[in-house]
Structures are given as C-alpha cells and as structure tokens.
Design a protein around this nucleic acid. Structure first.
Length: 135
DNA sequence: GCCAACGTTGGC
DNA sequence: GCCAACGTTGGC
C-alpha cells in the first residue's frame, strides 16, 4: 500500500466537504507530474488531505477507492482523476510550519515541491506525520 | 528542439 | 499584495 498527499484549497473543496460527500472524484488535476502520481494510485492507498493557502495544514486522512481513469472535466482528454473517500479527521492538524521545522521531513515532497498538488509520501514520512498528528 | 516570456500556484 | 518557483507557450 502506498501513501500520498493531496492538496485542496479550503475555499474550493475543504475537508469538511469530503466528509459530507463521503466520497468524491478528485478532478481538475492538470499538472503532468501530479497526473503521473494519480496514475500510480491504487484502491486502498491512503492519502493525507492538505489545505493549501488557508490553513496550510494536514487535516484528514482519505483513501483511494477507484484507480485513475480519464477526467471527465478535461476536454483534452489527457487528465486523469481518482475517486477518494474520507476516512477520519486528524486529531491535531499538522501544519506546514511544523513539517518545515522537522529535520526528518526535509525530503518531504510538500516542502521540496511546494507547487505540486499530488505528492508521494514514504512509509516513514507517513508514520512520522501520523505521530505528530496524534500529539 | 531551445529558450525567453508569460501565467499560475502557494507561502509569506 | 508580493514574490519565488516552476510549468507552459510560442517564436525561432
């Protein structure tokens, strides 16, 4: 099982909305690198849900329920989307500041490539961030 | 196929 | 609101 982090601007699609919807298709990703990551996702993979711009923190955990398929919102037909569902909120949101302050997370994609909206998370990073969120 | 110009994202 | 990082576009 693999781990990922997906970003959303709270003003566009906040965590609370995913909880309310229970599941959604993660459309609108146009970036090539992000699309590669989407394609690598498998049902059962876990995702951190991160709020960009406002909040700037990881707020919940979601799960991939359907592997990548063509994004119906993309007229060019190149983009892909996956379906995700909310699993649980995080006890203590893990802020970007906290992640940056942590030497162990220096290599985290969120820090290294801040503009990428779909980022892989290693096992170690996942566990470490989980620990931070349980504090 | 290279690279400058331009647009967008996202943190501060 | 500003600016750095980075992706995309378009001229050559």
């Amino acid at each position: 099982m693999a781990y990922w982090l997906i970003k959303s601007e709270p003003t566009v699609y906040p965590w609370a909305q995913l909880v309310k919807d229970k599941r959604t298709s993660w459309t609108g990703v146009r970036n090539a690198q992000a699309a590669i990551n989407l394609k690598a996702m498998k049902p059962g993979d876990r995702l951190f849900f991160y709020h960009s711009n406002e909040g700037k923190e990881i707020v919940g955990i979601a799960e991939v329920v359907k592997a990548a398929y063509p994004d119906p919102t993309d007229e060019a037909g190149k983009a892909v989307t996956v379906d995700v569902k909310a699993i649980e909120p995080i006890k203590t949101p893990v802020t970007l500041a906290a992640i940056k302050a942590e030497p162990k997370l220096k290599e985290f994609g969120l820090v290294r490539q801040s503009r990428l909206s779909v980022v892989p998370v290693s096992d170690e990073q996942w566990k470490f961030i989980l620990k931070m969120s349980a504090a």
